[in-house]
Write a protein that binds this DNA or RNA. Structure first.
Lengths: 239, 239
DNA sequence: GGCAAGTGGTCTGGTAAGCGGACCAGCCCA
DNA sequence: TGGGCTGGTCCGCTTACCAGACCACTTGCC
């Protein structure tokens, strides 16, 4: 195993002003990942401006960026739609990050292995009836998709997110946002791998079952096992 | 126990442009927390501008903010010094957040209870000789301070940070940054409480001992026990 | 005592991001 | 066909930030 870089503890970190359109791009990207399928329409630019509380110009800058990367295609008069497959555009910043990506995926999984089992235990202890039925819905959607042979990427992420929600700890949500940011470059790879794996479905079923009978220990170990399965798949997948 | 607020899963979050001087203020605040004692001088405005790669005006705006809150006192010709005790200034945004604070402290501790034990286990498995001796140094400083009756706030945080570093997972570091941001409003309370507790010292000793003999299970349970101790102290402290 | 170096305090002019609004051009449906 | 939606374009204004200059004050050294 290659030693991960251990950064010295810095007193200061150079400050970079965050640009609004970059922030907008992130959120749109996240929306696409979580809820939208290729072919779906984004909310209109004016709507987005309203929702995100920024000007339409900033929305447009963001969309222009996503268009350059090939994620999205604006059509005058119709709206902006999510592309089928991220096109291989000439502008591909991801290519550079290939090597770092592999390490990051591994570390993210390792982190999830630490955090998610106790999270599942909390969820088993605290989950309300609504939260459980939400999980069931997501799982059902995942099953339907996979039986059609589709990758259930969004559903996979949603399932884990719903577990986090049910833990009743709002700090977790902030942390998840951080992880999502880290995931941006990696999205296609680790999530798709996970989303395609049949094993993932079985893992989710076991976790949900434990949560439903409020068995914290079982939920914890089911989650641990599930992530170890995913880990195995990822490690055996060529990048 | 009051039910924590369970926010609905938001598709979007309003975008706020981060202002450079706010970012600067955060970093200075963190520096004060980690390294500086009351009476110490901050680096000069020109130095800070150089280090953080921002203009002196932004540094000044940030310092003006910290001055308003009473954290810091600029003296012409001398420098800017850290105040003895945060003065009760008329501008006290923290007062409003009192109720939320209590909840946040609890949730943060709960989160740490989930994350830090497996983190300690990783540290026990991976820690290098240098990392272990770093931990020993920190612990020694903490012991010295506490035997003088001082609160060892910085050392406490440093100890936990060194454990995180030794886990060899860089994702954790990102997450810690997120937590630090959340901690800002809470700093005085939870950290000081923890820093003052004699029990915390004993807990750290046990953790370090386990890490030194690379006993992952022992490190994990020592950390769990330590955080539970801290939790108990915090819960029995009036806010 | 006085000077030089370093500090915070103040002011100015310039730049770029973002805002808000107006208007155009294309699409779609009643 | 027209009205209402969409994205495309343009312009002027505001704000945060930068860069640099200069002042006022403290400190320490000669």
């Amino acid at each position: 195993m290659p030693a991960p870089i251990k950064s010295a503890k810095p007193d200061f970190e150079v400050i970079r002003r965050n640009k609004v359109y970059e922030e907008v791009a992130k959120q749109i990207e996240r929306l696409i990942l979580k809820k939208l399928k290729p072919g779906d329409k984004l909310p209109s630019e004016r709507e987005l401006a309203e929702i995100l509380q920024v000007s339409r110009s900033s929305i447009r800058d963001a969309i222009r960026g996503l268009e350059l990367v090939g994620l999205v295609e604006p059509r005058q008069g119709t709206g902006t739609i999510v592309r089928e497959r991220p096109t291989e555009s000439s502008v591909n910043p991801f290519a550079d990050a290939l090597k770092r990506r592999q390490g990051l995926v591994t570390e993210l999984l390792d982190f999830r292995k630490m955090l998610e089992p106790p999270l599942a235990a909390r969820a088993a202890a605290n989950a309300s009836a609504e939260e459980i039925s939400e999980m069931e819905d997501i799982l059902l959607r995942q099953e339907k998709k996979q039986s059609r042979g589709d990758a259930a990427i969004g559903e996979d992420a949603e399932f884990h997110y719903s577990i986090a929600l049910a833990s009743g700890n709002s700090v977790v949500l902030k942390v998840i946002d951080t992880l999502m940011d880290l995931l941006r470059d990696t999205r296609e790879h680790s999530l798709q791998v996970e989303g395609r794996a049949q094993k993932s479905l079985a893992g989710h079923r076991r976790i949900l079952a434990a949560v439903k009978r409020h068995d914290a220990e079982a939920a914890k170990s089911a989650m641990r096992r599930h992530i170890e399965d995913v880990e195995e798949i990822v490690l055996n997948t060529k990048f």
